[in-house]
Design a protein around this nucleic acid. Structure first.
Lengths: 113, 113
DNA sequence: AGCTTATTTCGACATTTCTAGAATAGTCGT
DNA sequence: ACGACTATTCTAGAAATGTCGAAATAAGCT
């Protein structure tokens, strides 16, 4: 993670619809949500939603996967952790003041191990 | 922390100069830095810097304090932690997957306790 | 092949944000 | 009070971003 990546990720999150959307996907977990369902939940026209999904995807914060006719989106926990780590990188003047991020990609209810 | 606050904070950080500036202050710690020194370090005209400092301040991410002729700025660790906590709030479908933020306002080298 | 559903891309417009010079406002020493 | 120093506000133009209808693309069904 460098400044440019971080700015892209932050800019992607710095918008009401996108932040809500991202958090929705964070909640949704590994199974993700199809674009249509997201549009409905957020009450945003599909073309607008598509624009926002693209922003988040370009920033690497969400992942896309086709499932039959629908495109399923889910949060990229790893990217999120990277961003948080970057933000708190030199927190407390470089002293290690504890773990900065702690969300694993694996999902408690779903992970095999 | 709510969505509106979070968007404000993220928007404040979603800009190359401001992100660098914020991280500079995070490194600088409790003692902070005067505006002039920041401007010099970042190579940004003072009027532009002032604009960015105001953005970060409005978002609650940095604190201002006058010291004689200089205005000293320092990172607001608490605000940062609040933001991170908000972002990872329902991480892993609400399962508590560990501490999301860990930077205390108190500074190892300076704290009394 | 043709029809239906799901989603994206295009285009045009409105809004917001960034930049930086010039003017203004506080603070201090003399 | 005056001058020097530090920093902000004002201003205007340039650049980037958000919105959403209409058209286009992709996938699956019969």
């Amino acid at each position: 993670m460098n400044t440019v990546n971080a700015v892209a990720a932050l800019a992607a999150l710095a918008q009401e619809h996108r932040l809500t959307l991202f958090r929705l996907l964070v909640k949704a977990g590994e199974s993700g949500m199809p674009a249509g369902e997201i549009a409905q939940t957020l009450g945003v026209p599909s073309s607008s939603l598509s624009f926002h999904l693209a922003q988040l995807r370009n920033a690497g914060l969400i992942l896309q996967e086709r499932q039959h006719r629908s495109l399923i989106y889910r949060a990229n926990y790893q990217a999120m952790n990277g961003l948080v780590a970057f933000l708190l990188e030199n927190c407390c003047a470089g002293t290690d003041c504890g773990p900065a991020a702690a969300c694993d990609t694996a999902h408690p209810e779903r992970k095999s191990a």
